[in-house]
Nucleic acid binder design. Structure first.
Length: 293
DNA sequence: CGCCAGGCTAGCG
DNA sequence: CGCTAGCATGGC
């Protein structure tokens, strides 16, 4: 097992690991203590762990640094997954000066977007429809524990996320037994599409509108889920998923952006939130409103 | 008990 | 195109 630290002072705009991983944007990490996605503020010094490309990665934040343990050098992996190269203050300069956005940024200072591995990201947001955050997380945990590849780390069994082929071979009934509900056939069909060669990562090479259309080919993926995958998995920081929370924020704070259709409202709010990093602003506002509800 | 949750699909007009 | 019923499940 390798280990190391990354000083927070090296990260422009700071870092808050708990907000980053428990704000409902990533379902690819688990707390080592078992608990996760509580409504209250996550405690400090908690270990979070995941499996990426067969490698175990664990990270926690304390005393001004990120401390990590891994079966490999986790620094480049963490840089990518936690977007450690983002300059948060420079990004915030692109935000509009509206009180909601500014208050949200101040309240959750150090929260970064994630860049989840695209397949688990895709499946997790297909599972997210009409569902609360803790239950989405529970579904991803059960998928990994039931069908994912096992890894032994310090005598403990850790499961990675199942491959598209594995998931496509699972019956709908087995998925329903994990309480995926009506999302079960969507998950199975999408896994089969990926297995058969439709690559969600290919969206990353396309311009934003085409990238979203590419993802909407997957069963169970509409415009909102596509925007989530673009934002939280493929680095499209301009994407603004129009969920119930952000729609409420639009109605209250940006009524001029309410244009009727998803496409038009999406374009208006992306412009209103500063363009290139509108999705970053959205993530702060989403978390801010959800925590205050 | 009813209502709603980071919506989507299918099937209508 | 736009509109909507139906969809599983759990927590309040």
């Amino acid at each position: 097992m390798e280990s190391g630290v990354i000083p927070i002072e090296d990260l422009a705009g700071g870092m808050h690991l708990g907000y980053t991983l428990e704000s409902g944007q990533s379902y690819c990490w688990r707390r080592r203590d078992g608990a996760m996605y509580e409504q209250s503020d996550p405690p400090a010094s908690v270990w979070y762990e995941t499996v990426v490309d067969g490698e175990y990665v664990a990270v926690r934040q304390r005393d001004g640094e990120l401390e990590w343990e891994s079966t490999t050098d986790a620094v480049p992996i963490l840089r990518r997954l936690l977007r450690l190269d983002d300059d948060l203050d420079r990004i915030a300069e692109t935000f509009p000066s509206d009180p909601v956005v500014r208050d949200a940024f101040q309240a959750y200072r150090g929260m970064r977007l994630v860049r989840d591995p695209v397949f688990p990201c895709l499946i997790s947001f297909i599972c997210s429809t009409q569902m609360r955050v803790p239950r989405i997380h529970g579904m991803q945990c059960r998928l990994a524990e039931t069908f994912g590849p096992q890894l032994e780390v310090d005598g403990r069994q850790i499961n990675g996320f199942p491959s598209p082929g594995t998931l496509a071979a699972v019956s709908e009934a087995e998925l329903r037994e994990l309480n995926l509900g009506y999302r079960a056939p969507y998950v199975r069909e999408t896994a089969a599409q990926v297995r058969d060669g439709l690559d969600p990562a290919a969206a990353g090479e396309l311009p934003y509108p085409e990238a979203r259309s590419h993802l909407m080919q997957f069963h169970g993926v509409g415009p909102k889920v596509a925007d989530c995958v673009l934002l939280f998995g493929l680095g499209f920081t301009q994407a603004v998923p129009l969920d119930t929370w952000i729609r409420q924020a639009i109605g209250t704070h940006f009524p001029e952006c309410e244009c009727g259709t998803y496409e038009e409202t999406s374009a208006a709010i992306r412009e209103r939130l500063g363009g290139a990093y509108a999705g970053y602003a959205q993530t702060y506002v989403f978390h801010y409103l959800r925590q205050r509800a």
